[in-house]
Each structure stands twice: as structure tokens, then as C-alpha cells.
Design a protein around this nucleic acid. Structure first.
Lengths: 125, 125
DNA sequence: CCATAGTGATCTATATATAAACCATTTTTG
DNA sequence: CAAAAATGGTTTATATATAGATCACTATGG
């Protein structure tokens, strides 16, 4: 959860203390992915520095990824996963592309906006 | 790839222009995840604002996630995925925990460091 | 045993991801 | 059709993720 609030500057509300909360599932999924990456890296006998170099990231960031840090950018995590051979979605590239097309087709059939019949109900009192 | 370079301050090399490159697989995996999220959200008839609120993120960030932006933090992406019901790893929480334990066991059997016998090899001949 | 590669941690400075506030457009409802 | 709601862009200011440099420690291989 991000707390936004009282810190006003230039007449705008600015973030004060960002403290996100994550569900257990998210935390565990990220942790598992990180551990799978570390296992795969070691099984392939690659050093942290090698993988970091290949992914174009720093060794420190790789460490955080392998530890399941939730604040790493998803691109870096996925890139490392690919490099050490951890398949995301358990699908190869062709399958992935096909899935994307299918999903886009599905998306085009759904309504563009999700109107809530909230009804502010003319509560004027 | 991150270019670090010439911008010197306080005797330290600082980043100039960060321009990462991503593999096609990473890009497609992230895109697919985003699209799956959008489809799931619409199927459940949730507005972008609702999901953003529940995930504790801004609507703008949710938009980027659904568009497959590689620079979003993985925690935010996974959290949204959970909220709209996109399963990561196709496993429930208990299974996930078990997998984590198994992976940690596996990890403990692997060598702690991956010494390269780099060896300048005493090639003196 | 010893040299050294690998790991893990901390620190610093910046690039940038993020939230909020707008605005324009599209879509839905009545 | 009109109003309301949702979406999808912007732009702006800051919190923070990141890279790199160190340092201490571990563990590997000779």
C-alpha cells in the first residue's frame, strides 16, 4: 500500500512514505522465481558476474533478484530468467507469440470499459 | 544494456544514459502477462481504478503493467496478477511453498561458489 | 595450506519509476 | 442524444532502484 498525503509542494500532493504491502502469494512467487534462477545458474556453473554481465545488470541487482526482492524491475528479472534457462509460462517463443495473439483476440471481444452502475444517486443532502 | 561512463562526479563513474536491451522472449512474456491481466480484469468486470486501488498502485502504473512495460517492479505486477486471478506458476500457495522448500534443498546441494578455472594457464611455451 | 575467485554486504550519487493532476477521447447508460 | 464514467494520454515532482566501488568473508583448487 502506498501512503500519499500531507506533504504539499507546489499545491500538489506528493508521496511521503512509500510502503507497499504484498500478498503472500506475490512474495512467494517472486521468491520461488529467484530461487529457481539461482539453482539454474549454479547448475549451469555460471558465476553471478557472468550472468549479470550477460543480462546487462549489476551483480548487486542479480543478488536481489535471486533473493526474491519484489522491487526489481520485471524486465531485469525475466531477462535473467531467460539467460539461465528458467522458462516463464513454460512456453517457448513461438507458443508465447501464439498465446499473445489469442489473448488479444479475446480482449477485442470484451467491452472497452467497465462501467460501474455506481450511481452517485443524487445524494445531495 | 546499461552504459556507464564519462560523467564523473566526486571521482566516481556515474550512469549517463540507461538503455537496457531485452530479449524478445522477455518482451513477449511481459506483454503476455500484461494482456492476461487485462483480459482477466475485464472478464471480472473490474475497472482499472478498482484494481489499482486494491493493489495499492496508481492507475497509470496499472496501465503500463497491462501494456507489458518491462520497467515496472515485479512486486506490483505480481500483485495485480493475483488480484485479477492470473495464477503465476499455475500453483496455489501451498504448492508454491512446497516448491520453495524443494528448491532450497536443491540449492543446498550445489556448490556455494562457481570457481572458474580461469587460470591464465601458465601458457609459457 | 595458500592464493584467489566468488559471494554478500554496505555506501553514494544519479536515472528513473511512480503518483497525482490534467485533458481528450471513447464508451456506456439512461 | 446527453451525461457520466472509463480509458488513455500527457506533464511534473519526488522517492527510490540501480550501478559501481569497496570491503570482509567464504570456499575452491592447486
Amino acid at each position: 500500500m502506498v501512503s500519499y498525503g500531507l506533504y504539499m509542494n507546489q499545491n500538489k500532493a506528493m508521496p511521503i512514505s512509500i510502503t507497499r504491502t504484498y500478498s503472500r502469494y506475490s512474495r512467494e512467487a517472486t521468491l520461488l522465481l529467484g530461487e529457481l534462477i539461482r539453482v539454474a545458474r549454479k547448475e549451469r556453473k555460471l558465476t553471478a558476474q557472468e550472468v549479470a554481465d550477460r543480462a546487462g545488470i549489476s551483480r548487486g541487482l542479480l543478488q536481489r533478484i535471486e533473493k526474491g526482492d519484489l522491487k526489481c524491475e520485471i524486465g531485469a528479472v525475466f531477462e535473467v530468467a531467460v539467460i539461465v534457462g528458467v522458462k516463464l509460462f513454460a512456453a517457448d517463443e513461438t507458443t508465447l507469440t501464439r498465446h499473445i495473439r489469442q489473448t488479444e483476440d479475446k480482449l477485442s471481444l470484451l467491452p472497452k470499459s467497465m462501467r460501474k452502475k455506481s450511481k452517485a444517486v443524487h445524494d445531495d443532502f
